[in-house]
């Protein structure tokens, strides 16, 4: 019997507790989940590519999320990725605008979202990958 391929999501988040929670709830939703704990690891995984969605924190050790997006522009992924959703904690308009200019699909202010609402947003972006 053919198995339906699970959609792959990469979580780039340095806060351990939040990263672990996102991994748990995304796995429970049936996604294949990979994670990175800092900007360099995140860049390497995004560069390897093949993710349907990347959740990208902006404030990260070693390399911030905006720098990752800039670096990916100049050094494209080996395998194409789907959309990127930025994770931030404040409504930083300049950062969000730069992220949008670099091609992100949207942003989530972490303190405004519960896991249920995050899943809704993730499904919206994944659906738009196919649209």
């Amino acid at each position: 019997m053919d198995q339906v391929k699970k959609q792959r999501i990469l979580v780039v988040e340095d806060e351990t507790f939040l990263r672990d929670l996102y991994i748990d709830i995304l796995k429970e939703e049936g996604y294949e989940v990979d994670a990175a704990a800092d900007g360099d690891e995140g860049f390497n995984k995004i560069h390897d590519g093949g993710y349907d969605l990347v959740l990208l924190d902006i404030v990260l050790p070693k390399r911030d999320g905006i720098q990752i997006l800039r670096d990916i522009k100049t050094n494209p992924p080996v395998k194409k990725n789907g959309g990127v959703l930025m994770l931030t904690n404040l409504g930083q308009e300049a950062v969000v605008s730069e992220g949008v200019a670099l091609g992100v699909r949207g942003h989530i202010i972490k303190s405004d979202y519960t896991p249920d609402q995050l899943i809704v947003e993730i499904k919206r972006v994944l659906a738009s990958n196919n649209g």
Partner: peptide
């Protein structure tokens, strides 16, 4: 640092919400 405080409050919010 408000960013750091909001980060920790977000974690608490998410675990409570789950």
């Amino acid at each position: 640092n408000s960013h750091d405080v909001l980060g920790k409050l977000s974690i608490i919010k998410n675990y409570l919400a789950v």
